[in-house]
Design a binder for these strands. Structure first.
Length: 184
DNA sequence: GGCAAGATCCTCT
DNA sequence: GAGGATCTTGCCA
């Protein structure tokens, strides 16, 4: 099972990103288990992508992007929020997929408590990490088990995948590497 | 050592 | 629809 997921993360990041749509992301923390179905992602192609944090090579912050396939790269955004990526490249290829949004599947009450509101639980990068209880502590851990965040097969992908330009960046803005799962 | 910008979210007008 | 919160990184002096 996890072997199939491992194989799924093999290939060009712009192919892997849409394949992650519909998969589940699970955390099990003292507050209780929480799980979302991934509904929006963006691909970042490491050193060949001007918008990637790894474009200028390895730094103390992005060292996780240079880790093994399936490593989490969690960074602080705007000094307030946490954003979560899954590394797809492996050694010497810091490509990663930014997880932008998900649909709550398990533990919506826990998410609501963490978010401090009952709605808009995980419909943005910062909200997704907050709802799942993911912080910088998860940076560098693996999503293949053993870490605080686990990537699991989805309930089967329903709906349609729509590609559009990425959000919130100022370079290579025209690359249509944002993938959204639209319910059918 | 200082400064500007950033893969965002929330509140107020 | 616009602006503030809040802090880390990376670049330049």
């Amino acid at each position: 099972m996890s072997r199939a997921i491992h194989r799924l993360l093999d290939g060009p990041v712009e192919d892997i990103a849409p394949a992650l749509l519909g998969m589940r992301l699970r955390t099990e923390l003292p507050a209780g288990p929480t799980e979302v179905v991934i509904s929006e992602v963006e691909a970042y192609a490491g050193e060949r992508d001007p918008a990637s944090h790894a474009y200028r090579g390895r730094t103390p912050r992005n060292v996780s992007m240079f880790g093994a396939r399936g490593t989490l790269y969690v960074y602080r955004s705007y000094g307030i929020h946490w954003c979560m990526n899954i590394v797809t490249g492996g050694q010497n290829d810091p490509s990663a997929v930014l997880l932008r949004a998900g649909r709550p599947a398990v533990g919506a009450d826990v998410m609501a408590r963490r978010r401090g509101r009952p709605d808009h639980l995980a419909d943005g990068p910062g909200k997704l990490t907050q709802a799942l209880g993911v912080t910088g502590d998860a940076d560098g851990t693996s999503v293949f088990g053993g870490g605080p965040v686990e990537l699991l097969p989805g309930p089967g992908r329903r709906g349609q995948i729509v590609a559009s330009p990425r959000v919130g960046i100022s370079k290579a803005v025209a690359w249509p590497w944002r993938f959204i799962l639209v319910d059918g």
